[in-house]
């Protein structure tokens, strides 16, 4: 008997409406988490270069812990472990957003630190010598320049985090991969469905790349 595999286009197309229900969750977890992660990154990134070591040390500890452990372990810990501690369940969406926030926050802290430290010391001296306070010098002179340099590595992190959300199918959030798994359980069309899932991730990450490239180009003239 001859076995011939054929890509079933109809099966792929049929799966789209069901899979698409996962997109809002993927986007919500990614961008919700990244937004909080960005705030965490600014706070801990700046603390990690503070002169006061009692501020620096906790920031460094946070960065090392969340960079040094797998995000899958982090989300399992939050979803299954933390409820024991706080005495109540955590819903999977919250757990997912928290995991992306904490994990990307650690990486973004390093991006912030690197960006700020890459700005020449002469910029700070020029600001101070004009009578600006340290805070004014930082926010009106150092930060805008550092932020522009941070855009490419931030874009990188955003793409990594979007893909990381696929792991959260294990805690049952109805994101893209989870939707795919459920759909396949009924139709047995794994090849077609995962193909569509992959295309959907690609569509999200490519649109983001495009937006970032436009953002970067706008800032090129001045730095």
């Amino acid at each position: 008997m001859e076995f011939q595999f054929q890509f079933d286009w109809q099966a792929a197309i049929d799966s789209i409406p069901y899979l698409a229900k996962g997109i809002p969750y993927t986007l919500l977890i990614s961008f919700g988490g990244l937004l909080i992660g960005f705030v965490l990154g600014i706070i801990f990134g700046l603390l990690s270069i503070n002169k006061n070591r009692f501020l620096r040390w906790p920031a460094t500890a946070y960065i090392e812990i969340f960079r040094g452990t797998p995000i899958l372990v982090q989300v399992l810990f939050i979803f299954y472990g933390l409820p024991d501690l706080i005495g109540g369940p955590i819903d999977p969406l919250t757990a997912g957003i928290a995991a992306i926030a904490l994990n990307s926050g650690a990486y973004i802290s390093e991006v912030v630190r690197g960006g700020v430290q890459s700005i020449d010391k002469g910029q700070t001296e020029a600001g101070l010598s004009l009578g600006l306070s340290r805070t004014q010098t930082f926010w009106s002179i150092i930060w805008p320049q550092a932020f522009r340099r941070m855009i490419p590595p931030l874009g990188n992190q955003a793409i990594v985090s979007i893909k990381d959300t696929s792991l959260f199918s294990v805690i049952g959030v109805g994101e893209l991969v989870r939707q795919g798994q459920v759909y396949i359980a009924n139709t047995f069309t794994a090849f077609e469905v995962y193909f569509v899932v992959a295309i959907m991730y690609l569509a999200i990450t490519l649109s983001l790349s495009l937006v970032l490239r436009l953002l970067e180009r706008r800032g090129v003239a001045s730095v």
Binding site: D120, Q123, E125, A126, I141, P144, Q145, R148, S222
Partner: peptide
């Protein structure tokens, strides 16, 4: 080194 602000 002048130290002008390059973003302004």
């Amino acid at each position: 080194q002048f130290n002008l602000f390059p973003h302004l």
